[in-house]
Structures are given as C-alpha cells and as structure tokens.
Amino acid sequence: MLFYSFYKTLVGKEITVELKNDLSITGLLQSVDQFLNIKLKDIKINEEQKYPYMLSVRNCFIRGSVVRYVHLPAEDVDVETLQDHSRLEAREQKKMQQMQQQQQQQSSK
C-alpha cells in the first residue's frame, strides 16, 4: 500500500513511465489503483519518430505489470516520509506474519 499511497500524492504531476517494451511515455499522472496501474493524460512518447505507435493518443492506461521504471519529479518526493513509511510497513508486515504463524501453530495443536 506504500507505493499506492505515494502515487496518489503525485496526481497532477508530470512523470515518465518506462515500459518493459522500451516505450517511454511522459504525461500527467491522472490516477492510480492498488495494482499500480497508472493513467496518464496529455501524453508524449519519447523518440516519437522511432516509436510512432501512439501518435493519436492523448490519454492512456498502463498496466502496472508492464512498468520497468517510473521517472519521478524529485522536488515532489519527500524522501524522509517515504523512509518512515517503509519502516512502518515493514513492521506491520512482520506483525501480520507472526500472527499467522501463531494461528497456524494453534490450529495444528
């Protein structure tokens, strides 16, 4: 959920999504869902001459699983908050695991 929440803070900002087929799409982040599927508007393909597949497309949906990288606007990324959230989520993840282990032990007794 960490990255889903993070992307929601970037709605309206310009990002570049690099796909696993080497296509690079720059646009304004319109929305995101829990699978990290991404919707961009006012898109531009980098190296349009070489990759003229989306010349008549302004808005698009990108399936999260085809993303290789996302280039982020550094000035809009609060690294302190990200690090805190990463630690917090790691802790919660562990708690969940321990609870599941305890439940399994109890049910096997």
């Binding site: 699983s65 290789r68 990288y69 996302v70 280039h71 606007p73 550094a74 990324v77």
Partner: peptide, 11 residues
Amino acid sequence: NIKMLFIRGDG
C-alpha cells in the same frame, strides 16, 4: 543518470 526513480520489483 536519473534524479528520482521508481523501480518495479519484478525486474
């Protein structure tokens, strides 16, 4: 060089 980058874990 890239200033700030998200990397998808499956790669």
